[in-house]
Computed example of a mutant assay.
Amino acid sequence: MLAAGATALLVSPLGARMAFAAAPTERRFVFLIQRGAADGLGIVAPVGDPAYAGARGDLAADFATAPKLDGMFALHPAMPNLAGLYQAKQALFVHAVASPYRDRSHFDGQNVLETGGVSAYQLKDGWMNRLLRLLPSGDKAIALAATVPMALRGAVEVASYAPSSLPDASDDLLARVTAMYEGDRQLHPLWQEAMATRMLTGDLGSDGGKKAADTGTLAAKLLSAPGGARIAMIETGGWDTHSGQRGRLGGQLKGLDAMVAALKAGLGPHWDNTLVVVATEFGRTVKANGTGGTDHGTGSVAMLLGGAVQGGRVQADWPGLSDAALYEGRDLKPTTALDVLIASAVSSHFALAPARTAKALFPAMTTAAAMEGLVRV
């Protein structure tokens, strides 16, 4: 049993793993979910679109001096580490992307994103757990989340590193317990791990990115351990920016940037064989509301990061931001299917058959053609 402050959860196996890959892999995969609907237009801005400045109003101000990615897009200035990855061709941004979900409920949208269905609660297990059934049994998975997220639930056993749901203890009490366990060979390492996982809660920008960086470091440690996990899911919250978006989103992106930088540093040479997919359940409205925020939308941006990524570009079938081009007159129109993107990247990363992988991960996917050139093979 772990010390108070952290729990380790297991999802019991309900069926055998089908190993289509021949041997254990040294490749790492991380799925980082942005819960709350991240504003893709506020992350990778289409500054070259003639309608951009007028449509976004004050939300465009942060991009006046933002680093340009190409002639059309700029990256939010709160992410210098991701800008460096882009320059090193280890970051690929895919814009105007969305899952099959077209309504605006967080719970339903996240369920579609995590299960890989075309409607909420259609499937009972997650696409990441089904991915594990395609990989060797030695390729374990772990969730850095309060509970095992839907994306990892299913037949294959999955561990979860999670903070306790009990009320926060005072710093004085934690210091006293730390001192009490200092000489205990069994409890001291467990308590140290509990203190590390305690840092997982809260918005990414709540402390300037320190907790987010600690999460990235912890994830790297778990993914680098001999015989440890090779697949991980990291939950992040705080992306529901209905008001005061500029300041809040900037803090969120600073935390995300710190998390990815810490993950890269902690993985060391393993980073070269790592793919990180960052995605959200849906995007946000193009135009701001009356409180300086945005409301639930449709199209957003997804990120592929890592040494395994064939990056240094923004991939987009850009629909435009004119009023006539918007989805339902308010949202960025999605032109790229998120399920196709994920299936294509993952199958290439793990050298799996694209069609078989797509069918296993997203059984109701309607688009047959895989996207090419996403990762280095």
Rank of each mutant, 00 (worst) to 15 (best):
F107T: 09
D103S: 15
G109M: 10
S99I: 10
L123K: 08
A98C: 05
A83P: 00
G116L: 03
Y86W: 10
S119M: 13
L123M: 12
G109T: 11
Q122N: 01
Q90N: 11
G116E: 01
K89P: 02
F93H: 06
V97W: 00
K124H: 07
Y86H: 07
Y121V: 14
L92F: 01
V94N: 03
V112K: 13
P100D: 08
E114V: 13
A91K: 04
P100G: 09
Y86T: 06
S99P: 00
A91N: 04
Q87F: 00
V118I: 15
A83M: 11
S119R: 15
S119C: 14
Y86A: 12
R102F: 06
Q87G: 09
D103F: 12
F93T: 00
Y121F: 14
Y101I: 13
F107Y: 09
R104D: 13
Q87M: 04
Q110P: 11
G84L: 11
F93A: 15
G109A: 13
G84C: 08
V97I: 15
G109L: 06
T115K: 05
A120M: 06
A83Y: 01
R104M: 14
V118E: 06
G117T: 05
N111S: 04
T115H: 02
A98V: 02
E114M: 12
D125N: 11
S119E: 13
L92C: 06
G84I: 07
V97H: 00
H106F: 09
T115E: 07
Q122P: 03
A83K: 08
R102Y: 09
S119N: 10
F107K: 08
P100R: 07
V97G: 00
Y101D: 01
A96V: 01
G117Y: 07
F93S: 14
G116I: 04
Q87C: 01
A83C: 03
Y101R: 05
A91F: 13
Q122R: 12
D125Q: 09
Y86I: 11
Q90F: 04
V94T: 07
V94L: 15
A83I: 00
Q90D: 06
G84M: 09
P100H: 07
S99H: 02
A83D: 02
Y86L: 09
F93L: 15
Q90E: 14
R102G: 08
Q87T: 14
A98T: 01
A120C: 09
Y121P: 15
N111D: 14
N111A: 02
Y86N: 02
G109W: 01
S119Y: 00
Y121K: 13
H106R: 11
A88P: 00
A96M: 06
L123T: 02
K124F: 01
